[in-house]
Each structure stands twice: as C-alpha cells, then as structure tokens.
C-alpha cells in the first residue's frame, strides 16, 4: 500500500515540477522530489542510496539551484516561443514519449532472465574483498574501475567549471548571507556535520555509508561555510586547492598501481591489506570529492551587473 502511494506520488510531484508557473516553485518542488526519492530508496532497501539522495538530491542540488535562481533575476521571460513550431513540437514530443512509454512498459513487465545471479556472486566473493558491506565492496573492489573513472569525470566537470568562472572577488562579494541566526547556528552545526561525515566514512566498511555519502555531507558543510561568508582555511592558495581536487584520483591511481609493480592487475588490492587500502582510498576520496563538489558551487559565475548587456539572442553568433 505504502509502495503504491509513494510510487504514485513520484510522477505527480514530477508533474508539479514541470508544470509549475513560477520557476521558484518548480525548484522547491524539485527539492521535495529529491526527499521523496530518498524515501523511495529506503523502500527499495537501498539505504546507501537514500543517504546519498538525501544529502545530494535534496540538499546540495537544492542549494545550487536556489543560488542560481537568485542570480538569474530575469527582467523578461525567456522570450516568446516559436509559435509556428510549437504545435508540431508538442505533437512530436507526445508521440516520442508515447512510443518510449510503450517500449518501456513492455520491457518492465517482461520478467528478466539474467544468466548471472549477481547478488549470489557478490555474496560469494565478499570475503576476499576486504570489506563487509556489499555496496562498498562493489564500488571499491569488484568494480573499482567504474569508481575511478567516475571520479575522473567529476574532475573534468570541475576543471571546465573553474575555467568558466569570473574573478575571485566578484563572486565572493555577492554570495553572502548575513543573518545572526545563521552565524549562531554555525558553531552548532559545523562540528555535527563534520562528525556525521567522518562517521559515514568509517562505517562504510561494514554498513551503509561510505566515501560518497560522507563527501556529500562534507561538501554541504563547505557550502554552508561559504554562504555565511567565513574564510575557508587555504582559500587563497590555488595550489593547495588544486592538490585537494586531484588528491582523491591521485591516491586511487597510486594505490591501485601497487599490485601492478608486483605483476598483478591494475586496481587489484594486496590480499592481506585490502581493507586498509580501501579505507585509505575512501578517505582520500571523501575529502577530494567534497572539495570537488564545493568547487563546482564556488565556480558559479558572478551575477550579472545591473547594466548587463542587452539581449543579443536574435543576432546569429
């Protein structure tokens, strides 16, 4: 019953996101959608995903969107739609969505006949992986390649983001919230968030938790610090920042190559020390990912000045 209700609410809230008149309302609906997704992950018995979704989907994405929204004070709506094309586009979109829906429905209702029983395989080999929690074992032992490349993808996103940003001072001057309540709460919240992050990191080896969830909480902490106008230690040392950004990927690569020197495979952990290696990599990843996620927030260009250039969208560029 509760599953049916939740599963029904999800598309309804999504409709709310898509149909909301004001953009602000759409964003708030989207944050609510993230929270609902966290609940859904709990019902799907994926507490790791619930943790990540609650911290990222509802927390970090919400902050990013609201921050962007505050800077896009648009003087006029995005412009008139192409009246000539709109009916055609609508029909096309509906036909496309309908076809996709039929295909998806067919695929979803047909029982899967997998040739490999993955849960059994994971249970069989988890002893050798060095950790006791299956999701962590998959992430950092069985499919470590995926995780490594994922960190690399995020690093690329951050490099592009940083390349696009305006000068430091612009951004720093604008995004600052000065509320006595926030300043007062900070000294309570920050130690708590740090504690939660480190706990999540540590617990990841035998229960739900791990580097990604810990990094999300830590990134939220950094964003909060930044919004309250506090100086971050090392904020003005670009070299330090860059070292932190690549630190996770670097540690992952270095430790992954240890076995390579002894004739083993890349990303295969030494048998006796697998647990320790995974914990080291996770620790490096936590701090590095937190910095990466924070850097993407920090990279947001400064808001348009009052006399921003007139719209030039109708000039071919």
């Amino acid at each position: 019953m509760i599953d049916l209700l939740l599963a029904l609410t999800l598309p309804l809230v999504a409709l709310g996101v898509l149909l909301a008149r004001e953009l602000f309302r759409a964003v708030v609906m989207f944050i609510a959608f993230g929270l609902l997704m966290a609940l859904v992950w709990v019902r799907l018995q994926a507490p790791d995903l619930a943790l990540a979704e609650a911290a990222i989907g509802a927390g970090l994405t919400g902050v990013l969107l609201l921050d962007a929204l505050g800077h896009l004070r648009q003087p006029h709506p995005p412009g008139q739609p192409l009246r000539s094309l709109l009916p055609l586009l609508t029909i096309l979109a509906l036909v496309l969505a309908g076809a996709l829906g039929l295909v998806l429905l067919g695929a979803l209702l047909e029982p899967l006949q997998p040739s490999v029983n993955l849960p059994a395989e994971v249970a069989l080999h988890i002893e050798a992986s060095g950790v006791a929690h299956p999701v962590t074992a998959v992430l950092l032992a069985f499919r470590a390649w995926d995780t490594l490349l994922e960190v690399a993808v995020i690093l690329v996103a951050v490099v592009v983001g940083l390349a696009l940003r305006f000068s430091h001072d612009d951004a720093a001057a604008e995004s600052r919230v000065s509320s006595p309540l926030l300043q007062g709460m900070l000294s309570w919240l920050l130690p708590l968030m740090l504690l939660v992050a480190l706990y999540l990191l540590w617990i990841g080896s035998y229960r739900s938790g791990g580097a990604f969830q810990a990094a999300a909480v830590m990134a939220a902490m950094l964003v909060l610090l930044r919004l309250s106008g506090q100086q971050l230690p090392g904020q003005n040392h670009p070299l330090l920042l860059r070292a932190g950004l690549v630190g996770g990927l670097g540690t992952f690569l270095l430790l992954g190559s240890v076995q390579l020197l002894q004739g083993g495979a890349f990303l295969a952990w030494p048998e006796q020390l697998a647990g320790a290696f995974i914990l080291l990599v996770e620790t490096a990843l936590t701090f590095s990912l937190a910095l990466l996620l924070y850097a993407l927030f920090e990279a947001s260009p400064a808001p348009a000045r009052k006399g921003h250039p007139p719209r030039t969208g109708d000039q071919p560029s």
């Binding site: 994926a46 993955l118 994971v122 995780t147 995020i154 996103a157």
Partner: peptide
C-alpha cells in the same frame, strides 16, 4: 536486493549532481 546496481546508481547520483552544477 542487489548491491551491484545500487553501487552503480550511487556513483550515478554523484555524477548527476556534478553535471547539474556544471
């Protein structure tokens, strides 16, 4: 309950937020 898709989706969520931020 299957840990493999869960782990893949976990990395997916983190990539999705960085893509959104970008």
């Amino acid at each position: 309950v299957d840990a493999v898709p869960q782990a893949l989706v976990l990395t997916g969520i983190v990539v999705a937020v960085s893509a959104t931020a970008l």
